[in-house]
Design a protein around this nucleic acid. Sequence first.
DNA 1: GGCGCAAGTATTGTTGACAATCTTGGTGGC
DNA 2: GCCACCAAGATTGTCAACAATACTTGCGCC
Lengths: 220, 220
Amino acid sequence: MSAVTSAAGGTEDVVDLVRTAIHQGEFAPNQRLVEADLSVQFGASRAAVRTALVQLAAEGLVERVQNRGARVRAVSLDEAIEICEVRMVVEGLCAAKAAERATEDDLALLREITADMRRAVEGGDVFAYSELNRRLHAAVRATGGQRVADGVLERLRGQNVRHQFRLALLPGRASVSLPQHLEIVDAICARDPERAEAAMRAHLASVIETLPQVGSSPVR
Amino acid sequence: MSAVTSAAGGTEDVVDLVRTAIHQGEFAPNQRLVEADLSVQFGASRAAVRTALVQLAAEGLVERVQNRGARVRAVSLDEAIEICEVRMVVEGLCAAKAAERATEDDLALLREITADMRRAVEGGDVFAYSELNRRLHAAVRATGGQRVADGVLERLRGQNVRHQFRLALLPGRASVSLPQHLEIVDAICARDPERAEAAMRAHLASVIETLPQVGSSPVR
DNA sequence: GGCGCAAGTATTGTTGACAATCTTGGTGGC
DNA sequence: GCCACCAAGATTGTCAACAATACTTGCGCC
């Protein structure tokens, strides 16, 4: 398929390379990850690849079974829904904290992102909107300042990028989620934690409802 | 300090051994974990120890810095509070789901645990109550059937056992939390998701309020 | 023709040695 | 006396080879 991606000896590099390869779909779900192959593909030692796979397994991106090697972990639709349910409550917490702790600079950033979102929807640019979506959620999390919650969400996001990406491509999805995003930012700007949490939960509840329409990715 | 704990060649075994050693306080926070030392202590190869440390680092139990080795990660009081805040919302979700999905057997188990809790409080057995507390929360999670949420909570619990343990030893703590536990089970038995979630959140909010009293563990 | 069986291949798990890096203690110059 | 510098020790990172295990293919037997 793809030739040697790059030469990176360090094991940390290999973790990043494999992770982004999975995220970008270069490695399909359930695809076997043979240590020797990856080691030549990335120009790293087998030990480095091995260490990277152990770490990625702990992150939940790959599955490793004794003496049978590693493969890209496939998250089913059911699991994607569960992930979003957890996201719903944890990001709700972040939104509430954000409403409590936001500085004026934080609010300015949030408003700026929503303004860009409006433009992206008007222009029909789904890709830009998807990126703005990511940035908005990240900004809310950063404003909330909950490092533990942030870590949990980052981990979950990593497992869900595929479903998330397919969701963004649904026609008309942006026009549905835009007002929800506006309401979240509004509530935070009003420094109303309960309303912010409710808005965030409503938004992700909507995501959960929509998820079945994208269907589970063709597994295998 | 402690002599050779046991002989276990497999790398999975080493993960468990180190994990329980940290949980039981045999390895103190910030204590260095030298690969060679652990390898003789556990009778495993250095590679096995190394792999175990990588995995435990991903679990958040140890810290690893390039070329400087691993040490037991110390969770500050602030972080313990953040962990409980995340637990609050995620266990709230589990409680709500438990109220929706519980079978009669599930409810019987929950009632049985609360009955034992009552007895433990009457008898003043804090150790038994602490164990029942763990079992009750585990039972609620199991009843909720959310595997993703369960994984997140298990991970967070692992990082927090020390604070959790000290909390349980606070005098009078059991009498405060017992009615909260009863309310949680009551709500689940009434199959009222919203009330169950609110009860669980109230319980953990109480834990968060109490945490500062136990103070942060002496971090050297 | 289908099924058990055995050899061969592919892949992972483990080991030991070596190289790279950090830490520690001492030494000399200022 | 204090700081930069250097060397020795300790510790981690890397590598290649070996052992153990799972998978595959072909064969004989029923």
